[in-house]
Amino acid sequence: MKHYSVPRLMTKLLLPLILLFALYVQFHGDFGPGGGFQAGVIFAAGFILHALIYGLDQTQRLLPPWVLRIGVSLGVLIYASVGVAGMLLGGAYLDYGVLDSHDPMHGQHLGILLVELGVGITVASVMVTIFYSFAGRGR
């Protein structure tokens, strides 16, 4: 892909938009369609596009595999620890209402935001990890 300047330039233009859209889907999931899962996949798709156009090495310099390994477990950890935090504050596991002592609804908001963030981080890291493994295998 080194000699195709149009796809390279278009990728440069599209990539920030894709990542921004992923973040929008992530944090706007409460109000419109979307959520952590879709956002994670879109986020991963941005990096996969980068890898397809610029080559795997460039992308791995941008987003090293060890970051992804951490991300894969960090997302599940965030999700599970939100549940544990609810338990410590005197509620049931994954009961977000107790996260805010004044208004249970705020607690719910916070809980859903954190949980979706965890899902997003895990899904994005997993998708890019799988892509790295498959794409790096042939070499």
Partner: peptide, 16 residues
């Protein structure tokens, strides 16, 4: 829950 998207509230809270 106080969230307009019911899908999100079911997914993340009721069916956590």
């Amino acid at each position: 829950i106080g969230i307009p998207n019911v899908v999100s509230s079911v997914l993340a809270s009721y069916r956590g």
